[in-house]
């Protein structure tokens, strides 16, 4: 039964992933649609970051937000992404000691 559930989950996850491969093969988009699609990564990043980041520590939204602000600051100064990640982890670790 669990196996069937997993297969069902896999199908509804994988089908939306690969259908676009066939769509772009068949259809040429107008300029505005291309611009829209080119903006999707940035919109997606925004939506993935907030408000999700405030629930890193579920009952203390400020912890995630402070970690995020530190990450923004360090990334802005051009720090390598791995160091940004490690700094954010350390921040949350210290704030929850």
């Amino acid at each position: 039964m669990i196996i069937l559930t997993i297969i069902g989950m896999a199908l509804v996850t994988v089908i939306p992933r690969f259908i676009p491969a066939y769509i772009v093969d068949k259809i040429q988009f107008p300029t505005w649609a291309n611009r829209w699609l080119n903006a999707i990564p940035y919109a997606a990043l925004g939506a993935l970051i907030f408000p999700g980041i405030s629930s890193v520590v579920p009952d203390r939204p400020s912890v995630g937000l402070i970690g995020g602000i530190i990450a923004i600051g360090l990334a802005f100064f051009g720090l390598n992404i791995i160091l940004v990640v490690i700094a954010a982890i350390s921040t949350v670790f210290i704030l929850t000691l």
Partner: peptide, 18 residues
């Protein structure tokens, strides 16, 4: 629990340079 912020920090690290 602290590592829960890792992917968010990665997203930030990807977004900010852009």
């Amino acid at each position: 629990q602290s590592m829960g912020i890792a992917l968010y920090a990665m997203f930030i690290g990807l977004l900010i340079p852009s």
